[in-house]
């Protein structure tokens, strides 16, 4: 596969995929590229904001309400964790506990803290509890396998 990159000013980010024939590899590649551009519509106060998947640090279910956390802001999101999980499958987002989905792109470190609890430290220094049950799923993301 040949990769060409070029800067074209004043135009949106464009990816052109040229293929000799359509096959599962091309399909997977296109699916991956499409998912990199996923956006979520979150609400904060009275405003509605479109949040790119790469800006999301983690998604949390707090008393059956879903919240999207970016570096510094929190947004309300009106869908269930199961819906989100199916949308983000194949991306860098992965479930880390019953109530939390984390973006591994912003993961700085995983620590084993007191009593062997697991803690994910994000690159904005926020800490999340990781359930051991989901550790293999995180590992799969870093192995380059889709969960």
């Amino acid at each position: 596969m040949r990769i060409e990159k070029r800067q074209v000013k004043d135009r949106p980010l464009t990816v052109i995929v040229e293929y000799p024939e359509w096959n599962s590899s091309v399909e997977r590649l296109i699916d991956k590229i499409s998912k990199a551009d996923l956006t979520f519509t979150g609400k904060a106060d009275d405003r509605t904001v479109s949040i790119g998947i790469s800006d999301i640090y983690y998604i949390e279910n707090v008393e059956r309400k879903i919240f999207l956390y970016t570096d510094k802001e929190v947004f309300r999101y009106d869908r269930s964790m199961t819906d989100i999980e199916s949308v983000v499958s194949g991306t860098e987002l992965v479930r880390i506990s019953r109530t939390c989905i984390m973006n591994t792109a912003h993961l700085k470190e995983i620590r084993q803290i007191r009593n062997s609890h697991l803690e994910a430290v994000m690159d904005n220094e926020e800490k999340l509890i990781v359930s051991r049950k989901y550790l293999p799923d995180i590992k799969r993301i870093f192995k380059g396998e889709n969960v």
Partner: peptide, 15 residues
């Protein structure tokens, strides 16, 4: 415990 430790090491190394 051993597997968890190995998995954590693997992830941190990849990061």
């Amino acid at each position: 415990s051993f597997k968890t430790k190995k998995d954590v090491e693997f992830i941190n190394k990849k990061i």
